[in-house]
Structure formats: C-alpha cells, structure tokens
Design a protein around this nucleic acid. Structure first.
Lengths: 222, 222
DNA sequence: GTAAAATTAGACAACAGTGTCCAAATTTTT
DNA sequence: AAAAATTTGGACACTGTTGTCTAATTTTAC
C-alpha cells in the first residue's frame, strides 16, 4: 500500500532557507502578500506595497533589492508559513476517535480555518493556480518544502484510520483528495479570495462535507 | 422539495444583451480573454491584446472604446458563452440510465471538458474568484444570466434522478455541489488555468469522482 | 466602379511605475 | 553621549501604457 509511515518521523522544522522575518521586513512581506492576492504578481506596485507597509520605498529596495527578489521572498514566505500551519493541523488528525464524524468534522475545521482560509493559504493557492507557469521558483519551492509534500502525509492519515477499521478505502490518496474537495465544496468562494469566510460558514462546510465523505467511505461494521 | 421543475421550461436563448461577436471583434475578445486568464485584469495591455488578435490598436479602441469597457465586454462574453455550454451539457443529464455509473461518468466528462476546461469556463472561474470584489458588473452579470443561474438546474437534475429511484439524497443542492467538487478534485490544477488538462486526465478524474459520489449517494435497492 | 465604412500605421502628450542616488533624519548599538 | 546602522523623502532618468488624433489604405456595400 505504501502509506505505512509513522507520524513521529515527520520533520516539523521549518525549511532552513526562510528566516523568520521581523520588523519592517515582516511588514513589507505582509503588505506584498496582500497586494499579490489582491492584484496579481504582474500588477503589484512597489510604491503601493511600501505605503501599505508604512515604510518608505527605499526601505523596500534596501531589504529586497529588486521586484523579482521581492516576489521570490513572498513565495518562500507564503510557502513556509502555509506548510507549517498545515503540518500543525495534520498533527491533530484523529487516531481512534469515539465518534468518527465529530472527530473528522473538527479536523476539517482545523484544516480549513487556519490553513486554507488564512492569508498565506489563500495567497499560496492563488499563486500556484496562476503563476506556477511563469515562476519555476514557485512550483519548485512548493514541491521541495511546501504543502506539496504534505499531501502524501494526509493520505497516510486516512490510510491509518482505515487500518484501524474506521474507513473502507480502495485508495487512500484518492480519499484524501476527495475529503479536501468535499469540505471545501461548500465554502463561499464567490466573494473572492480576499474575503475570509466566517467561522460558521467553515463549520457548516466541514460538517456537510464530512457527512458525504462518510456516506462514501465509513466502515459499515461499526 | 422545490426542485420540481421541467426540462422543457429552460430558456436556451442566450442573454439578449450579448450579440454574437464576429470578425475582428471576436478576435479581440478572444485575445483579451487569453490575456486576462494569463495576466489578470490589472496587468493586461491593450497593445498586447491587439497584437495577439492580429489587429491594430486603434481598432480595439474603435470597437470597445475604453479599457474599462473592454473588460466589461470580456466579462459578458465569457459569461454568456460559458452559460450556453453549461446549459448544453446539462440538457444531456441522464434520465433513466441502465448503468448509472457509466451514464454519470459520461455526463461528468461532458460537464468538465467543454465547460470547466475551455477558455471561457476557466476565464470565468478565474474572474469570479479574483475580481468579483472589484467589478460588481461581474457578479451581477453572473447572477443574472450566467452559470450562477444554472446551479439550481443541476440540483434539479439530481433531484429527478433521486425521484426515479437511482439515488438517495437528503439535499439535492448539496449533492450537486459535491458532485462537481468530486469530479473536479482529481483534475491537475497545479499547472495553472492556462493549461488545458488532457482528455485522459478528464476521463480519469470523472470516473474517480463519480465512483466516490455513488458510494455516498447510490440507492441501495437497485 | 464608386462611395462609404472600416482598418491601419504612426506620432503625440500625459501618466504611472521602476530603480538609483543622495543628504538629512531617525533609531539602534556601543 | 557618540558612533553606527537604518530609514526617510525627494529628485532623477527611463520605460511602458493609455488614449487621442491624423492621413493613408484597405475592405465592404451598392
């Protein structure tokens, strides 16, 4: 089956090449992130980012040097932070829950709310969908260090739950993708990635998605 | 239940306010569409669009008058064409199939391949996700004439299939959303919206998604 | 074939953004 | 308190884009 990995082998250390930015640099990266999510990689303006960050334009050039390097820094920052929050959520995957539906719903909320809905997750998804063709750096970073690595891990979680008798799965990686697709299906996306869904909306989407997921994959012997 | 509509009542006429563009205008709109999908609404250049359309810049201004109006024209065009192709696919929803799984898989392919994957569908999804906040015209047009209207229709299709005894549904609109989410889940999106998935990939994604869908919703008495 | 309409190429001013330089001001460190 | 590092604001040349205008050319309609 290929999913027989152990949770404790996961390396939770953040990717080494992304120093935790603080101070002005942090403000610049956050502002740049907002700008990218709002306007796209091609339409961002250094002036606007500097103004949004409450910093002079020269400071941006001092820290990042170049628009290209600014973009790369944003990509790395978003990837690292998003991966870290995803790892944190995955670490809470239920092992032997009393109530599978409740446990999976809570896990879905933990996955959706801080990971898919926060600024980093939205920015990353946006970037991957839109810019992976133009910035090879992006896809490379994602595959090497980011949540791209985490998908097999999520699949492993479901395989474990199946091995414990809670689920009946043919293919754990399909189940993992369908799980995420189902809990995301009911999130209101029409408002655009700039608007964070409410907690209630997330809760409802998770519950509805998990119910369908379990209709498909719950073990019948329980 | 509220889904008791009849197929023959659907108005297949295209929205009245979008004349079928031909000739140079068609070329301009197509080029603009490609540019928007590739670069975003903020980053498009009239010069580049004109060059891509094989047309002089002045002709763009003659036809559309303004960048703002160009964007609005693209939105209307994309919405109308996407809605038309979605309607055409929905009209082929299976009624009393011998093999539900095969019939739904074929329908899923018809839904995915021309509707979600063609340039209009991708452009529309892209626009909705990204620009609905800034261009109220977009959300308005979508809700009034576009595929936004079609969701209840798809839900009605599933309700009918359930009424015919093929499915067991609590909520047909949830089932419709989950159906689309599942058949879309396995499409390779990491390549970005500029790359159209291969026919085989679409076929595989549809089959996998439908299998899970039927695990959840297939009637057990058949 | 001729008149009308559409299209083209090119020039043009106005504007916005980039990236650099520098001197003054501010903050941090010693 | 002095020294060092960082930040600021403004000026600058440069580039690319917009939208307008013109005269010449091509296409279409009669």
């Amino acid at each position: 089956m290929g999913y027989g990995f152990c949770m404790s082998t996961i390396d939770f250390a953040p990717p080494p090449f992304v120093p935790q930015a603080t101070g002005k640099l942090r403000a610049i990266l956050d502002a740049a992130k907002r700008a990218v999510v709002r306007d796209g990689l091609n339409a961002i303006s250094i002036d606007a980012i500097a103004a949004d960050a409450g910093v002079s334009r020269q400071t941006v050039y001092n820290h990042l040097g170049d628009k290209e390097q600014l973009v790369i820094a944003v990509i790395r920052d978003v990837t690292a932070r998003s991966s870290a929050s995803l790892m944190a959520a995955v670490a809470t995957f239920p092992d032997r829950p009393d109530d599978v539906e409740a446990a999976l719903t809570e896990f879905a909320v933990r996955l959706l709310d801080p990971c898919m809905c926060d600024i980093d997750g939205r920015a990353l998804r946006w970037l991957l969908e839109r810019e992976s063709g133009r910035y090879p750096e992006l896809l490379q970073t994602w595959q090497a260090y980011g949540p791209g690595q985490d998908w097999p891990i999520i699949a492993g979680c479901f395989a474990r739950l199946a091995a414990n008798g809670y689920l009946e799965l043919d293919d754990a990686s399909v189940a993992a993708r369908h799980f995420v697709a189902l809990i995301s299906a009911d999130l209101p996306t029409a408002q655009g990635p700039c608007v964070r869904p409410s907690r209630e909306a997330v809760q409802k989407a998770a519950a509805t998605g998990v119910r369908t997921f379990l209709r498909a994959f719950a073990s019948r012997q329980r």
